[in-house]
């Protein structure tokens, strides 16, 4: 599904180019639960942003189901972000001024739905994730685990091809982390959702079926 071919990226610091990604080749198949591990600053998040159509400045080629993403413009990339990918962040990134219901329905609205159509779908999904009674609450009124569930609901409401999760358990205690990881596991096994997970918590790796290691911009696959 996802194919990165010889992808590289460098930042300019003090007139010097500092490489973050060096000739990365990666292939992700439908149904994969992939963990990207590595120390902080190794380029994990950069790679994730690149896969999520957020970063456009890189060398090499990115193919999504054989389609070259590299040359697409803002409108096409926005559409890809909306329909093909769901993001889950370490600090949840829910919009504070909107209720949980309003946060979760946003991807649907950007996909052309109106407020009346989204209501049932959002409620159903929130129930499935165990926060069905929190729809009218604001993010600050929820616990970390509940907020992350809401964020996951937002990520999967448009039925994306894959979910990108950037240290989704990094701000949660171990019990809640396990809950969240089980949610991902269930999505992967029951609904066949492809998940790419960035983490440096080795306990979360147990849920995954593939692990790659990022070290100083170089990606290596760990055999299992």
């Amino acid at each position: 599904m996802i194919k990165l071919d010889n992808v590289g990226k460098a930042y300019k610091v003090d007139n010097q180019w500092v490489p973050v990604l060096k000739d990365v080749d990666l292939e992700v198949k439908q149904g994969d639960f992939l963990a990207i591990m590595g120390p902080s600053g190794s380029g994990k998040s950069t790679l994730l942003n690149l896969i999520g159509f957020i970063d456009r400045n890189y060398s090499g080629n990115y193919f999504l189901e054989g389609d070259k993403v590299t040359l697409k413009g803002d409108v096409d990339l926005s559409k890809l972000r909306n329909q093909r990918v769901g993001f889950v962040f370490q600090h949840f990134n829910l919009i504070e001024t909107l209720t949980i219901q309003e946060n979760v329905e946003l991807p649907l609205l950007y996909n052309g739905w109106n407020n009346r159509q989204t209501k049932d779908k959002v409620t159903e999904l929130l129930e499935k994730l165990g926060i069905g009674d929190k729809g009218s609450k604001y993010p600050k009124q929820l616990s970390g685990g509940q907020q992350q569930r809401a964020a996951i609901a937002r990520a999967i409401i448009n039925k994306p091809d894959f979910i990108l999760a950037d240290e989704p358990t990094g701000a949660l205690d171990s019990q809640t982390s396990a809950d969240i990881m089980n949610v991902f596991k269930r999505l992967n096994e029951e609904d066949g959702v492809t998940i790419i997970l960035v983490t440096h918590d080795s306990s979360t790796v147990d849920y995954c079926n593939r692990v790659v290691i990022m070290q100083d911009g170089i990606l290596t696959e760990e055999a299992r």
């Binding site: 957020i54 803002d74 409108v75 926005s78 559409k79 909306n82 990134n93 919009i95 950007y110």
Partner: peptide, 16 residues
């Protein structure tokens, strides 16, 4: 700014 980033990640175009 953060809200803008989140919205963009969720599929908002520059135009919207």
């Amino acid at each position: 700014t953060k809200e803008i980033g989140i919205r963009r990640a969720l599929g908002a175009t520059q135009k919207s």
